[in-house]
């Protein structure tokens, strides 16, 4: 029996073979190793390792911070995308190109730069300190780092959707008597929603697992500002492999949930507004 319909195109065996072997060697086998390790521990030990207070607060901190940062990026990402697509002003293309800076700038570089800026003696840190706020070496510092790394996700997923909105639909809404605000709320927003949610989920997934940009600015106090990926690194340095694996499995679970969420959003929106 053939797995693939007969085709005059050559190279299926070669390309599919390459894809499967590289994917297995580099991605699937290592992830499998993590799952096997977890299975070896048994459910009881696994649950015990994750429910320790330090681990729990680290996972919670990572998730909560990523959620807040992604929500911030959801709102401002849509605004930035809207301004970049719809308005014409000097510097627009420069700003458009700069949006991807967080993708291009290594996370460690971003981490030490943000720390220098927001530390109590840094440019922004001093201003915050004047207002009695502590940003670096405190939970807000984590948010600053995650907003930075997550900014491009919403902008870049929403931008092409805004560019494709049919102006006539907005005009139709206006001819029917709707104010500009009503048009934006009832006609534009629903169309942007799936893309915005996808970008939000991507930023969230990135934020939960983010390490490089956060560890410099966070302060890394156990139970207070210690994020989950850092705790994995610490457990490995303590040769507590099982402890590290348990946290890793919990984070993998969150990743899969996120992936499912993204796919669900896309399927839902395609079914809902899949115009011919």
């Amino acid at each position: 029996m053939r797995i693939v319909a007969k085709s005059p195109m050559p190279g299926f065996a070669l390309s599919a073979g390459l894809v499967l072997s590289l994917l297995s060697l580099i991605v699937l086998l290592p992830i499998g190793a993590l799952l096997v390790r977890g299975a070896g521990m048994g459910l009881g030990d696994l649950a015990a390792a994750i429910s320790g207070e330090r681990v729990r607060s680290a996972l919670l901190l990572s998730f909560r911070s990523a959620l807040i940062a992604a929500a911030f990026n959801l709102v401002f990402g849509v605004v930035v995308a809207w301004v970049l697509v719809r308005y014409r002003f000097p510097g627009r293309r420069l700003i458009d190109a700069a949006i991807d800076l967080p993708f291009a700038l290594p996370t460690a570089v971003a981490g030490i730069a943000l720390t220098a800026l927001y530390a109590p003696n840094g440019v922004f840190g001093q201003i915050a300190a004047g207002a009695g706020l502590r940003i670096a070496y405190a939970p807000p510092g984590i948010l600053v780092a995650l907003v930075f790394v997550g900014l491009p996700f919403v902008v870049r997923t929403v931008q092409p959707v805004i560019a494709e909105i049919d102006r006539e639909v907005e005009e139709a809404s206006a001819t029917l008597g709707a104010s500009r605000l009503t048009t934006l709320r009832r006609v534009v927003a629903p169309v942007l929603m799936p893309a915005a949610l996808t970008g939000f989920a991507l930023a969230l997934a990135r934020g939960v697992g983010e390490y490089g940009s956060v560890i410099f600015i966070a302060g890394n106090l156990p139970m207070k500002t210690e994020i989950a990926p850092l705790l994995i690194v610490i457990r490995l340095e303590e040769f507590d492999i099982d402890g590290a694996a348990a946290i890793g499995i919990a984070m993998l679970g969150i990743s899969f949930a996120m992936l499912l969420l993204i796919n669900a959003v896309q399927v839902w929106s395609r079914r809902r507004i899949g115009y011919v």
Partner: peptide, 8 residues
Amino acid sequence: QNYALFRH
């Protein structure tokens, strides 16, 4: 011309 119906 293309009706501009609200597809959602």
